[in-house]
Computed example of a mutant assay.
Amino acid sequence: MSTVQLPGVQRAAILMLALGEEQCSQLFAMMHEEEIKEISLAMAQLGSVNADTVESLCAEFSQSISSAGMLVGSFDSTERLLQKSLSRERASQIMEEIRGPAGRTMWDKLGNVNEAVLANYLKNEYPQTVAVVLGKVKASHAARVLSLLPDSFAMEVIMRMLRMESVQKDVLDSVEKTLRSEFMSNLARSTRRDSHEMIAEIFNSLDRQVEGRFMSALEERSREAAERVKSLMFTFDDLARLTPDAVQKLMRAVEKDKLTIALKGASDEIRTLFLGSLSERAGKLLRDDIAQLGPVRLRDVDDAQSQIVLIAKELGGQGEIELNEHQDEQMVT
Rank of each mutant, 00 (worst) to 15 (best):
V4R: 14
P7I: 00
G8I: 01
G8D: 09
V9M: 05
V9S: 08
R11G: 08
A12K: 09
G20K: 05
E22R: 12
Q23C: 10
Q23T: 11
S25H: 06
M30D: 15
M31I: 01
E35D: 15
E38S: 14
Q45T: 12
L46F: 03
N50P: 11
C58K: 04
C58P: 07
Q63R: 14
S66W: 05
A68I: 06
G69L: 03
V72K: 11
G73Y: 01
F75Q: 15
D76I: 04
S77H: 03
T78F: 00
L82E: 01
L82Q: 01
L86G: 08
A91R: 04
E96L: 11
E97K: 07
E97M: 09
R99L: 11
G100D: 00
P101I: 02
P101T: 06
G103S: 05
W107F: 05
W107T: 03
L110R: 07
L110Q: 05
G111N: 11
V113M: 07
N114R: 12
N114Q: 12
A116W: 13
L118S: 02
L118M: 02
Y121H: 08
Y121F: 10
K123V: 12
Y126P: 12
P127C: 05
Q128S: 08
G135Y: 05
K136I: 04
K136T: 00
K136P: 03
A143K: 08
A143S: 13
R144Y: 06
V145Y: 01
L146W: 09
S147W: 09
P150R: 05
V157L: 05
R160G: 03
E165N: 11
V167N: 06
K169N: 15
K169Y: 07
D173H: 06
D173G: 08
D173A: 11
S174T: 10
V175D: 00
K177T: 13
F183C: 02
M184P: 09
N186M: 12
L187C: 09
R192Y: 11
R192W: 09
R192L: 12
R193W: 06
S195E: 15
I199Q: 12
E201F: 09
I202Q: 08
R213P: 10
E219L: 04
R221D: 15
R223M: 11
A226V: 02
R228V: 14
S231N: 12
F234D: 04
D237S: 10
D238Y: 01
R241E: 13
P244I: 07
D245L: 12
A246E: 03
V247M: 04
V247D: 04
M251Y: 06
A253I: 01
D257I: 04
L259F: 05
T260E: 07
G265Y: 01
G265R: 00
S267F: 07
S267H: 09
D268N: 10
L273Y: 08
F274G: 02
F274Q: 02
L275H: 01
G276K: 06
S279N: 12
E280M: 08
R281M: 13
G283P: 03
L285I: 11
L285A: 10
D288I: 01
D289I: 00
I290P: 03
Q292F: 13
P295K: 06
P295F: 08
L298V: 14
L298D: 07
D303E: 13
A304E: 06
Q305E: 02
I308N: 00
I308S: 04
V309K: 06
L310T: 15
K313G: 02
E314M: 12
G319Q: 02
E320R: 07
D328E: 13
M331E: 14
V332C: 10
